[in-house]
């Protein structure tokens, strides 16, 4: 699926640039994009190392186990295959907490740690349903306080930068429920019947 989408993006862009005469812009965009990706990965390298370091401390001290037990009523129901796996549950909870608190820079390294731990336990060459649900969770965002958005709104002169909180909570929760429902229905094979 990603192959098809990527192919569509690249070929569509080339055809479109030929039609609109923007080939010069397009070649600049290729180099700029590659440069941006390298810059981003250096930024990611720093936050990745820092957060995986803190994660290790939290794991050794038993803090992630505490977190996993606290979240386990919800986590066990959503991810039954990892019910007995304290390590994976701990990593997942760290990622969920980071997402919830709006710490995007911490969420990616912690999420990668969780997915890598799940991949180690997985013998097949496709992701398990637990891994898919976890990644899909990360594509929907549940945030307690969207600080960055509020800052952006007030910089544009908003009189009530946080006034849209209920809308954001309802919308992100609805999006998350849609994702979870899709995953759960598909993994049970119900969608094929419909």
């Amino acid at each position: 699926m990603l192959n098809a989408i990527w192919f569509g993006m690249i070929l569509g862009s080339v055809v479109c640039a030929v039609a609109t005469g923007r080939l010069g812009d397009l070649s600049a965009a290729v180099m700029d994009g590659a440069k941006d990706a390298v810059e981003l990965s250096f930024f990611l390298l720093g936050s990745m190392c820092a957060w995986l370091g803190f994660l290790k401390i939290a794991e050794k001290s038993g803090l992630t186990d505490l977190l996993a037990s606290a979240f386990s009523p919800v986590i066990d129901r959503l991810f039954p295959e990892y019910r007995e796996d304290q390590e994976i549950k701990g990593k997942m909870c760290m990622n969920f907490s980071a997402n919830f608190l709006g710490l995007g820079n911490a969420a990616t390294p912690l999420g990668l740690a969780a997915v890598s731990a799940m991949a180690k336990k997985n013998i097949g060459n496709t992701p398990t349903k637990g891994m898919i649900l976890f990644v899909v969770f990360n594509t929907a965002s549940i945030q307690l306080l969207p600080i960055n958005m509020a800052a952006m709104r007030s910089s544009c002169g908003s009189t009530a930068p946080f006034a849209i909180l209920p809308e954001i909570w309802i919308t992100s929760f609805a999006a998350l429920c849609t994702c979870v429902l899709c995953c759960k229905l598909t993994e049970r094979g119900n969608l094929r019947k419909i």
Binding site: V14, A17, L26
Partner: peptide, 23 residues
């Protein structure tokens, strides 16, 4: 871990910037 994601980032970000620049 971060070097393993570099190829993915380059592939995706190049494609996105092409889509935007081409119209």
């Amino acid at each position: 871990a971060s070097f393993r994601v570099l190829p993915t980032l380059i592939g995706l970000i190049v494609a996105v910037s092409m889509v935007r620049a081409s119209g």
